[in-house]
Design a protein around this nucleic acid. Structure first.
Lengths: 401, 401
DNA sequence: CCGACTAAGTTCAATCTCTTAACTTACTTG
DNA sequence: CAAGTAAGTTAAGAGATTGAACTTAGTCGG
């Protein structure tokens, strides 16, 4: 699992304990807005006195705010506590194959502003400079002296070296071994806080789990179907961890083999999932040029038989892929995003049908794993990267809490 | 991930902190035998005073023992610390399709005694009674008043309901929804400590990672190739967590689809990995009856062309399975066990060759993921279940530390 | 309208754990 | 054999949580 911010703390002192309790309080309110001090005390197994002191300091530092007085249940009514969305800002960005996406968002994950710049990234250096410029615009608008910047997260379309901020490979950008944050830093010296980068599907998965309130799934898998196909798995409701693998290859489901002896993939192997379902394989099957936008080109053609056949076959492969993930990692919830979801039923129905028909074969349960499709996932990864910044501060070694 | 013993502690008091530090000290010595108090202090970021007090209490309770005086490096020589293997005992058992396996082992994972009872389990009740009887033998031999029993772990051949001690399904035993510990308990009232049960591949994976000393891999996947085929994934060197999934289906790689439209599997779906590589599919392909021991039947026939073809095809499927796991979860290390490994090169060479040939395609690195084959994995799962007992005590809410 | 009741939140002395700093122990080196 | 160095111990002090008493702020019933 090993997320970058995971505490190496095997042991701790009193200061560590204090921070642990502060972050536990903050987490409880984050996940269940409107909790009272008394609720926190009973849920976190702390005394009223400790919670009182902790809440006091979190209020003072602008992490929490007091809300309405709750209905009394016979005694003194409790005071609702909420995240204070006014005093901090998180920045998230995604470098995609077809553009840059940026968000500024609050502690609770509310997007203050987003921006989508359509372009085909060229070199890492030029892309970093452009992204920095766009980020400057967001910073000007939201760092007005009232808000403190907590940091920047960048999502990238490829595996990241674990432990090091290095993009190992982005086949669809033609990039390899890029220290993208280092390219960004000279242009953004005034952006303070935590800087991090991650794979886009992993950032997206993290954000989808982390910003949720109420009933939190134990784990969540995000499947990103675009030019390539990748996934991110997040587990643990308290401190969600992202599965990375020793080389950052966890989630490279596009290169799992579904058809032994099948078509050659750009990775050199045969029968990879991406040869069956991916933006590039659909382009290849239908002869759509790189310059054209795949979705725009296909949406008017969905009634054509060859388009339908291609999408149905791709959808069937996607269904198998989803079922294989179910039997390999069995996430509590699957979220399907990426540009291909915009193609709708012709692609998705065969996938969802296969998954639904087969997911309960082993156990014979009626319990179904929820599978949610996000039609517009434009900012999901960028927002997820911002979520990772917040988590790194709440659970990491930072002293802001 | 969510192992049963994972602390729900979101917050803690001073007593919790003390236990955390004690368990950190114990973990450090466990992973690096021969550490001195000074080494622990620097590695755990604690002061000499805290470590001194912690070690004192762990010595007193029989967890640690003082060893030899180390070579001085100019000043007072440090005193080596080791796990005390004399004062505690862990019991582990596995209910397999072809027999019961039991071990008694020490804190450091050393097997004091093991027993393999060849039989085909009948009903859960009868099996539990027999297992209890065999365990009584081990208890008599090793609970001599000098040792305290820390608990019992039972490994079972099927998915376990997460959070509940229920075996959801064991297709090769014909069992379903069995509370095996509840069946065992009436016969073993004198076996004190933590009781737990888990899937055999998950127990095996856990034990292979947990009892290792020195350089610990960040994660480890155990692939169990026997009558069926399953896997277990463990991550995190400090507190290793076992991936289970929301229904306990994580690791059911035998039912990932490798051949769309392929043969029917007993689960009802088509083209599952188990239809290509598993004890039962090899039996089916070669017409070997259930009554015969598969390995004994095949070992003399390895030169026959149809046996070679069958095993080569199965091996190729196993290779694809391993590569898919590499691209889905990317473990730091893969361990291959289960009875089929005894078939040797005819099955394994195609698998290992395919994996080695393809694992570095994406990144183009020279770094290879180590893949180790265990020829005799008889007691791996039982010992792993014992490891899980130890972990549940060191990291769990128990007050023995 | 008012007093009894209940539960939320606060205050403060007590308790517990870690830390700092001085001290003791034990071996190496010249 | 004395100086030097590092391991390990001890005792006073600092800091965080706790428990109990207390204050606050509602509801409920007469």
């Amino acid at each position: 699992m090993s997320t970058s911010y995971q505490q190496q703390h095997k042991a701790g002192d009193l200061h560590f304990l204090k921070r642990l309790n502060r972050s536990a309080i903050l987490e409880l309110v984050r996940r269940t807005p409107g909790l009272t001090r008394a609720d926190i005390a009973s849920q976190a197994q702390l005394t009223k006195a400790t919670v009182g002191a902790g809440v006091q300091s979190l209020l003072h530092q602008g992490w929490l705010r007091e809300g309405e007085l709750l209905k009394s249940s016979g005694g003194r009514p409790g005071r609702a506590l909420h995240l204070n969305d006014e005093r901090h800002v998180l920045f998230g960005a995604e470098v995609g194959v077809h553009g840059l996406r940026l968000v500024a968002c609050t502690l609770s994950g509310q997007v203050l502003e987003s921006h989508h710049e359509h372009l085909v990234p060229t070199t890492p250096e030029v892309t970093a400079e452009l992204l920095a410029e766009l980020l400057h615009g967001l910073m000007r608008a939201h760092l007005d002296g009232n808000r403190r910047c907590l940091g920047l997260g960048v999502a990238l379309p490829g595996p990241i070296a674990p432990g090091k901020p290095v993009l190992r490979l982005a086949p669809n950008l033609g990039w390899r071994d890029i220290r993208f944050l280092d390219l960004l830093r000279p242009h953004l010296s005034r952006l303070e806080g935590t800087w991090l980068m991650d794979n886009e599907a992993k950032s997206a998965a993290f954000g989808e789990l982390y910003f949720r309130t109420g009933n939190i799934p134990e784990s969540l898998m995000y499947v990103s179907a675009g030019t390539g196909i990748g996934s991110g798995m997040v587990e643990g409701s308290h401190l969600p961890l992202v599965a990375r693998g020793i080389q950052g290859l966890a989630g490279e489901i596009g290169h799992t083999v579904l058809q032994p002896g099948g078509l050659y993939c750009h990775c050199g192997n045969r029968g990879c999932a991406e040869t069956l379902v991916s933006g590039w394989s659909i382009r290849a099957a239908l002869g759509i040029a790189e310059e054209e936008d795949l979705i725009e080109a296909l949406l008017p053609r969905l009634n054509e038989p060859d388009v339908q056949t291609t999408l149905r076959r791709a959808g069937e492969a996607l269904g198998i892929l989803l079922l294989n993930l179910h039997h390999t990692q069995n996430p509590s919830e699957i979220v399907l995003g990426g540009s291909l979801t915009q193609l709708g039923a012709p692609l998705l129905s065969p996938a969802l049908d296969y998954f639904k028909a087969n997911q309960s074969r082993l156990l014979g349960t009626t319990q179904q794993v929820p599978l949610r499709v996000i039609e517009d996932s434009t900012f999901v990864a960028a927002r997820g990267a911002a979520a990772q910044v917040l988590a790194s501060i709440i659970h990491g070694p930072s002293d802001l809490i």
